[in-house]
Computed example of a mutant assay.
Amino acid sequence: MNQKRLLKIALGQFASVHGDTKSNLSKMLEMIGEASNAGADLIVFPELAYSGYRNPSLVMQRLSETQEGPFVQAMCEAAKEKRIHIVAGYPEAGEVPGRIYNSAIFVNDAGEVIENMRKVYAWGKEKLTFAEGKRFPVVKTRFGKVGMLICYDAEYPEPARIEALKGAELIVNCSVWSIDPAEHRWHVDLQANALFNLLFIAGCNTIGENICGSSMIVGPDGKERMVASRTEEELLIHEIDLNEILEIRSRIPYFKDFKEDTFSIDALKKY
């Protein structure tokens, strides 16, 4: 318990240029370099950082790439060169032509793809463009177990709880979160998910065009540890100690008292 498990997290908050993957990739590579120079172990980028969020469906189709495409390969090369883990959003071309996903790639510091999450809960008109994923993954890394969510996934309590029960110590959330009417929910949802599950959450948002910025790190006590600007591009860097989870869970008995069997499908049918 005395030995710390330190993890330095970087959040690359920037405004993606809609449809300009070259410009967005350049900005991401620049931030990856800065984060690496600052000693960060992990950098997280916003939802659809590579393509921009507000593209017509046909444009998003054209911008979508497979995991073997140039975007993922660029992330792998940068991760290996800079010795840093990367989580970044992009439009993923699925196995069926015309079926694309709002996805986030997770690359380790050896340049290997260790997870690819497809957003499970598409928000509003996103359903007209994207198919939805089916998994809430937790990834084992050299510094601990990391869960992944994408934006609207954090508005439901179950995804974060599922990942916590899979052993997640940190959940990363790639987002494009609006000011009106949802800005207050950005803070409340991330704080609540962190507190209810007694783990760290790192939420990376974008800025501009009715987006609330405020990328943040939240501790397992539900308190915001560091928050970025609401309106400005920013590389937020903050160091956490994952062993703080054990200390807080020793004081707050949520997981000792939680009755998993009452939330099974069979149990719910009884009510």
Rank of each mutant, 00 (worst) to 15 (best):
V107N: 05
N108D: 15
A110G: 01
G111L: 09
E112H: 10
V113Y: 04
I114S: 05
I114N: 03
N116F: 05
R118C: 10
R118K: 15
V120T: 12
V120Q: 02
Y121L: 12
W123T: 05
K125Y: 06
K125T: 12
E126W: 02
K127P: 00
L128E: 15
F130Q: 07
A131W: 12
G133D: 02
K134F: 12
R135K: 13
R135P: 00
R135I: 08
V138Y: 11
V138F: 13
V139W: 03
T141Q: 03
T141M: 06
K145Y: 08
V146R: 04
G147M: 08
M148T: 09
L149C: 08
L149M: 15
L149S: 01
Y152V: 06
Y152I: 01
D153Q: 02
E155K: 12
Y156P: 00
P157M: 09
A160I: 04
A164Q: 10
A164P: 03
A164S: 14
L165N: 08
L165Y: 06
K166I: 00
G167L: 04
G167Q: 07
L170Y: 07
L170D: 02
I171D: 08
V172H: 04
C174P: 00
C174N: 15
S175G: 00
S175E: 11
W177R: 07
S178A: 06
P181M: 08
A182R: 06
A182F: 15
A182Q: 04
H184T: 09
H187Q: 12
H187M: 10
V188W: 13
V188F: 14
D189C: 09
D189W: 10
Q191D: 02
Q191S: 15
A192G: 01
N193L: 06
A194G: 08
L195Y: 15
L195I: 02
F196K: 13
L198W: 00
L198R: 14
F200W: 14
A202Y: 07
T206W: 02
T206L: 01
I207W: 08
E209T: 01
G213M: 07
G213Y: 11
